[in-house]
Amino acid sequence: MTKYIVDQSHSHIGFQVKHMMVSKVKGGFDSYTAEVEATDLADLTDANISFEFDVASINTKSEDRDNHLKSADFFDVAQYPTIQFQSTNITKSSDCYEVAGNLTIKGVTKQVTFHTEFNGKGTNPWGQEVYGFEAEAKINREEFGLTWNAALETGGVLVGKEIKIIVELELNRVQ
């Protein structure tokens, strides 16, 4: 098995959630680590994939909102500073992969499946092979203890339950 790491300058780990039932708030994590081990990244079926996100690095382009997300109302970074993902099973379906694994948020672990596309492989100007992937998954935030919300006068709630996780990766072989 060969080890690969994420090129963070060419990757993004993000999310989006409905806001006030009419728009979407998007954000991401600026600090994370990831490791992928595979025989060949062009075929992920035997890969071992792990991620760890520094929750304090959450960035939604609003300092007040980011501070609220870090508080005990949401992620409680003082008690739960990281989010982890560890793959458990990967299957190939046509040109896509279903990457199933354990996602742990606030001490709660649930099985989540990322629908993953291999975008291809290339060689950068320094002669290093790079591999590109995109993946998405949807979770119910309340299942992970992220239950804070506020009712709106017009009906509905401030924050939607469904979170879309969006991963865009460029991976490099560990030299």
Score class of each variant (00 low, 15 high):
N59T: 13
N140D: 15
N67F: 00
Q79Y: 04
I90A: 05
I58E: 00
A42H: 00
D46C: 09
P125M: 13
E134V: 13
E129I: 00
V108A: 10
F74C: 07
S87D: 09
D95Q: 13
Q111C: 04
H115T: 08
F75A: 02
F118S: 10
P81N: 10
N119V: 03
L103R: 08
W126I: 08
A100Y: 00
N119E: 08
I139R: 03
N59Q: 15
S93G: 08
N89K: 13
S93C: 07
N89H: 12
V55C: 06
E136Q: 10
L69V: 08
D54T: 10
N59F: 13
T91V: 12
S57Q: 11
W126R: 09
T91E: 12
F118Y: 15
A47N: 03
D76G: 07
T33S: 13
T104L: 06
K24W: 09
A38P: 05
G120E: 12
F133G: 09
G27N: 07
A100I: 00
S71W: 13
V108T: 14
N102E: 15
Y32G: 06
V130R: 02
L44D: 01
N67H: 02
C96I: 04
N124K: 03
I49C: 11
V36T: 08
N48V: 14
A38G: 02
V99T: 06
G132C: 09
K26A: 10
D43H: 11
D64M: 11
R65A: 10
T60C: 09
H115M: 09
F133V: 09
G122L: 11
D54F: 02
I105H: 05
A137F: 02
Y97F: 14
G132L: 06
D40S: 11
I90C: 06
T91D: 04
T82S: 14
Q128L: 12
S93I: 12
D64K: 14
L69E: 09
D46V: 05
K121C: 10
V25D: 03
L41D: 01
K26E: 10
Q84F: 00
K24P: 07
N102D: 15
I58G: 03
T123W: 02
E37N: 14
K24F: 14
S93L: 12
S31R: 06
L103S: 05
K61Q: 12
V25I: 15
D73L: 07
V36Q: 02
I83H: 00
V130A: 02
A34C: 14
E52W: 07
P81Q: 09
A47I: 06
A56K: 12
E37T: 15
D95S: 13
